[in-house]
Design a binder for these strands. Structure first.
Lengths: 131, 131
DNA sequence: TTAAACGGTGGAGTATAGTCCACTGTCAAG
DNA sequence: CTTGACAGTGGACTATACTCCACCGTTTAA
């Protein structure tokens, strides 16, 4: 199929598919062309795009996706090691959540006394001392 | 003071300070030069860098910082409007937290049955159907 | 036939916040 | 004096994931 079709079927834009080819996430044989030089995308490429879509949904980066699919395709996919990596991702996410929650509290605190007392103005008073 | 000194005092790198000048977050009068053409940074610039540092700590982007400082300096700082903006930031943060928590659960779910059942492999089985 | 959509390529741009590189001039310390 | 650090400028690079632009050829539908 042509790129417009596979774009439609996969839910990725043509530009995104070309980008994935450029970074090696998708591989098209050089001979996969029509007579007019248009690229012929096989159903296998569509499958791969669907895999990419699913993995992106659970937070995998493109680099990680490339790695996971490569392992899978060479039959060397190690669920134990994969679990370790996933748990590491979970840990990073938990860290992020804590940071966001801290930030949230700080912001709420900043406006708690508004308009009687404005913490942002206080910061600026303390640092700029211009008023 | 010279850039090395203000970098030291402010905790920002020289490159960062130059970057802030470039994007207009810091403004140096053209005449603020020594005889050898080295830039002379006034204490006011240091104050401003300190303000930037504090605002970054509570999650403000550089664009937001530029805006807030500008308002403050023109005496037009509106605590009420500022509160609205802050609460909007809080809302976005809360959204992010929810997304991260969802993602966390999904990832934990993905490895829950590992190594008996590997969800990642299942995704790849479903999509790639190559094994 | 014509115009618009589609396809191709190469490359730059976007967002955000820096960071690094190349080159030149100045300053300070050994 | 010499060398290394410091300062300046312009511009490219980094990270991540696209998206847009310019230009050219092909296809499609009115």
């Amino acid at each position: 199929m042509l790129i417009g079709i596979i774009a439609q079927e996969s839910g990725f834009s043509r530009d995104t598919i070309r980008y994935y080819e450029k970074i090696g996430l998708l591989r098209l044989p050089k001979r996969a062309r029509r007579e007019n030089n248009y690229k012929e995308y096989s159903p296998a490429i569509l499958s791969r795009l669907r895999a990419i879509k699913e993995l992106k949904k659970i937070g995998y980066t493109l680099a990680e996706i490339q790695q996971v699919i490569a392992s899978y395709e060479t039959g060397g996919m190690d669920c134990i090691a994969g679990k370790g990596q996933v748990l590491e991702k979970v840990r990073l996410i938990e860290e992020q959540i804590v940071q966001l929650q801290t930030l949230r509290l700080q912001l709420l605190e900043a406006v708690a006394d508004c308009p009687d007392h404005c913490k942002i103005a206080a910061i600026l008073d303390d640092t700029l001392m211009v008023r």
